[in-house]
Nucleic acid binder design. Structure first.
Lengths: 343, 343
DNA sequence: ATCATTTGGTAAAACGTTTTAATTGTCTAC
DNA sequence: GTAGACAATTAAAACGTTTTACCAAATGAT
């Protein structure tokens, strides 16, 4: 056992040819006769030759690895994303090296620094506040980069994400169509542009529908609040806003916290309060009476991101700086937004 | 911009020393005078020197990367796992390269082959039927390997997973304590040893409690069934087993399918049917009246796995072949197993 | 027959490290 | 003073590839 890996040099010796010849045959370059080619291919095959990635990487400067930096691979959204990205990358012979930042800025910076030690050919990153410089630096150094799930306003870094503004706008519209007029919103204080866009969509929709100003019916959960505290905060919020008859949660995890809060308060959905949450997931489809959600097109986002990245990698001088892909979401209507029966 | 990365050679030139000296200083080897050391360190620091991983890898044969091969990174269980593994690995300066097999044997084989092209120093793998040979081959070639979430009976590959037998046994016990006597089970037909162990635990518990033989009240969902078909199958199963008053789902996804089925049939939990599912997750805590679950110690499993792997990597001649870590699970009791009120 | 071209093949450099073995001084001990 | 020990430094080989530039032989054109 422990057969030493066979190298190109060994194959050369075995076939009585030169290293160059073997390399040429294996890569389909140069011009080598059919017979010699066949002999080399046979020997390579028989001995299970696999090129040494490190050597190739050192010589050519390409690693065939792309770095995926996300907030956390756990969770349905990024998990699903990672899966698609990995599958698509694999088709191009690329592998994924995965890093999570847990929303920790320093960790994000570290990750970028590590990966840039010539070990990845491109990056897919979920941006976070404070990482602008580091990412811009990659771009300036002509590293292929695609941002997903967020972007940096005012910079020229290609990005693909759901259309957050329109999605939130549509959610409010859905409430209105069903007869709800006092629509509150719960969001998080993470400094993420995507949450901000959702807020803007919400506010714009209120305004367009001539509904009362929302400043009162808006709750921002601090980023460092844990789950239980969050539930309590939401409960307090709901109790205070007596007239509120519908509530919009801007993220998945806020939505589940919200359900817990509503359950604790023994309120009925949608009779006492209608609900919409961002990010569809199993809880929402199962939880009675079914929670209306904004389903992010994870597949499309991931697919587009990897495609754009590959395009950058392959055609070296592609100008991707103008790519701003905002993909529409899908509103999944369930029981939580049934038409209101006026009291 | 696009400053060419600085190399050890450049630093040598800049400090008027030799390549060797720089390498020695940077790695704390050899014996170099304080003054020269300082000069070199300063220059390296100032220019943001980072060693070229490829070159190091080629020269030393270690990549500082470990391969994580799981069924699918999506899903709460593996996602959480991946997170812990990545965090722990990072402490030792290792990065994770991630691959999912989607339960596809060929893909699993391909992954192992790719990763073994000298690009990872160790493997964490969720085993699947048919991969025995390939994995054994890694072990024979002295590659560090740890299996998680499953194992190959009769082989000597270190593994860490939840104690599936005891977990299932405890679930049945919980039903019995609450007064349920006709306990059915729904499992999947994936050929996975862990599911088999769960079945065995279930059967043993039935026997020890002198309950009626279970062969009738056992449903096996074929591996290629989609979600809707699964729900239908479970509905049919429940309707057929009139006397069944409790049901045990051996996986997360079967559990949620089961909830859907029970909901469709308009049965009450636990009055009409008590429920326990493997793998705790948000749905189960939220879904009224709260579903009792077997919570896998994901953190412990992941932590142990990476620790064992690191131990193998660092102390080269560690005999890990006897490591068989079966970690107890935690039964989270919720409303779905409240004491039965006899009719 | 001679020169130009093509065809089939290879030597050698380079990528950026690590590490062995060698080379210079300096110092100690006799 | 000289032999050995030791300290500080370095030259050079090696890891496994890719690729440039070159060479010899065969073919074609005149």
């Amino acid at each position: 056992m422990m057969k030493k890996k066979i190298s190109i040099k060994d194959i050369a010796k075995l076939t009585d040819t030169s290293i160059t010849t073997v390399s040429f045959v294996l890569n389909g370059k140069g011009r080598i006769s059919k017979e010699i080619s066949k002999k080399i291919l046979d020997v390579a095959q028989k001995n299970g030759y696999e090129p040494n990635r490190m050597a190739v990487g050192l010589r050519t400067g390409v690693s065939k690895v792309i770095g995926l930096i996300v907030e956390s691979i756990g969770g349905p959204f990024f998990g699903e994303m990672a899966k698609v990205i990995e599958e698509e990358a694999e088709k191009g012979g690329y592998r994924i090296i995965y890093c999570s930042t847990n929303n920790n800025l320093q960790k994000g910076k570290d990750m970028i620094r590590m990966l840039s030690q010539q070990l990845v050919d491109g990056y897919i990153i979920t941006p976070m506040k404070g990482l602008e410089k580091d990412i811009q630096n990659l771009v300036d150094n002509e590293k292929p980069v695609v941002l997903i799930d967020g972007y940096f306003p005012g910079t020229n870094i290609p990005h693909v994400l759901v259309d957050n503004f329109a999605s939130a706008y549509n959610a409010v519209d859905c409430f209105v169509r069903s007869g709800y007029k006092n629509i509150g919103m719960v969001t998080a204080d993470l400094g993420l542009i995507q949450l901000n866009d959702r807020s803007l969509g919400y506010k714009a929709a209120l305004k367009d529908n001539k509904l009362k100003d929302s400043s009162k019916m808006l709750l921002k959960i601090p980023f460092d609040m844990d789950k239980n505290e969050g539930v309590e905060a939401i409960k307090a919020f709901i109790e205070k806003q007596k007239q509120m008859d519908a509530i919009f949660f801007t993220t998945n995890y806020l939505g589940t916290m919200g359900l817990q809060a509503i359950k604790d308060l023994k309120l009925r959905i949608p009779e006492d309060i209608a609900v919409i949450s961002f990010d569809d997931n199993e809880v929402f489809s199962l939880y009675p009476p079914g929670i209306t959600t904004i389903q992010q097109p994870t597949y499309d986002i991931a697919k587009s991101a990897i495609d754009i990245l590959m395009a950058q990698i392959n055609t070296h001088k592609l100008d991707a700086s103008k790519i701003d892909l905002q993909i529409p979401s899908k509103l999944i209507e369930r029981g939580s937004t049934l038409a209101k029966v006026s009291a």
